[in-house]
């Protein structure tokens, strides 16, 4: 058992866990943040995607100990003051989710994707960028639509602000 400390959704948190504890287990079981999911064993489905130090990563393939000292954002930390993040709002408006299980990973992936591409996305790019996230319900059609809509809105908002 080692003590692991990190910043999660803006709060410094600590917990004791085995060195073999995965980051996703630490988040779900030690911190009780069950929005981050586990859908496979081979780091392919992306249900576990979170942001570590500002970048999307798969929390099922990182030990909690590896993440010690880092800054983490999970799906629970995305909406500010009860208002849905524009990506969350776009998923709702475009019916980009059905069973909801892949959704937290999809949303965290989309936020990272839009950041890296500065909102400049087209359908082919979005589909290529979703290589690490599997959805079994939507056929991706409305996920792609939602991400494009969010990207347009977010870059539009930035242009308006500039």
């Amino acid at each position: 058992m080692a003590k692991v400390t990190m910043t999660v959704n803006g709060r410094q948190v600590s917990g004791h866990c085995d060195d073999r504890t995965l980051l996703v287990q630490f988040i779900r079981e030690n911190l009780g943040l069950t929005g981050t999911h586990v859908g496979c064993d081979t780091s392919q489905c992306g249900a576990c995607v979170i942001h570590m130090d500002g970048k999307s990563v798969k929390s099922c393939s990182i030990l909690a100990a590896q993440a010690a000292g880092s800054t983490i954002t999970t799906i629970e930390g995305l909406a500010a003051d009860g208002e849905l993040h524009p990506v969350q709002a776009a998923f709702k408006a475009n019916h980009g989710l059905q069973c909801g299980f892949c959704t937290p990973g999809m949303v965290m992936t989309a936020v990272d994707m839009i950041r890296r591409h500065q909102g400049q996305l087209d359908e082919a790019t979005v589909r290529a960028e979703l290589e690490g996230n599997i959805c079994r319900c939507t056929g991706y059609h409305n996920i792609v639509k939602a991400i494009l809509a969010a990207a347009a809105e977010m870059s539009g908002a930035r242009v308006a602000a500039e």
Partner: peptide
């Protein structure tokens, strides 16, 4: 290589 999340690590 891999996917965006894998490429970050």
């Amino acid at each position: 290589i891999g996917d965006p999340h894998v490429r970050h690590m």
